[in-house]
Amino acid sequence: MDAIKTIALTKYYGRSRGIIDMNLTVADGDFFGFIGPNGAGKSTTIRTLLGLIAPSEGSAQILGMDIVREKEAILSRVGYMPSEASFYRNARVSDMIRFSASLRHRDCRAEAEVLCERLELDTSKKIRELSLGNRKKVSIICALQHMPDLCILDEPTSGLDPLMQREFYAILEERNKNGTTVFISSHVLSEVQRYCRHAAVIRAGRLLISDSTEHLGHTDARRVRIRGITSPPALPDIRDVQTDADTVSFLYGGNPRKLLQALSALPLTDVSITEPDLDEIFMHFYAEGEN
């Protein structure tokens, strides 16, 4: 059984495009990254899956259940963390966490206490007194305290400091090892590269690619940075050229011998040839989508 499966899922807001023909599969137990630029349709996909908005066409299943007909059953097994961590401003943190648990008819006190301790959250404060980072922590606890089978997390780490980000991912990895499926929408590609086993790229409402992060990150192209010149060597298969004072950087996907020959003829003072990071590869996907 797949944790998430969408079949030609489409959402239009009037005439505006939300998502189009989305065919996405997330296997049970996976740690999955959902990547795309602003306005690509990431949040629309998540909101449709959770029943906040109704699909225009197509269908989707979560944990084998239909998102329209079995919404309540789905939500009882899902933990959702929205990108905007908004709560009732005058409520105390402890009240908010308790309210979330009672809406699920669960006693989550023990797990909530563990999470609060690990995330160093003061539960006696009022929501309106909290910074964005602390509101995010409340959101994390509300999403995880009931030990869901599937976590859907929309831009979860924005606002969290690096130490808390590390602790947050440690918690997610532990949950994932115990069988929880984790689905993360993120702009931070290094996070996806580090933690996710699979990822999908969405652009302009359409799914561009869905594969393992290892495959997505694999490319024959290399990032070449040369100091001492102002324009790249005259070689085929060069793209994404960036110049900065006396440094030129470009992606090279051609024959390495030809590159070395060209480099030996240049008045360079330093050179580095590295694998491009996932950011660069996704930028390539985005650019392709635009073209």
């Binding site: 959770l50 906040l52 309540e72 789905i74 929205p82 905007e84 908004s86 709560f87 401003r89 809406l103």
Partner: peptide
């Protein structure tokens, strides 16, 4: 208005 609908409506209550 207060953006709490997303929180409330993603709990298992119709």
């Amino acid at each position: 208005k207060d953006q709490t609908a997303e929180f409330l409506l993603t709990h298992p209550v119709s």
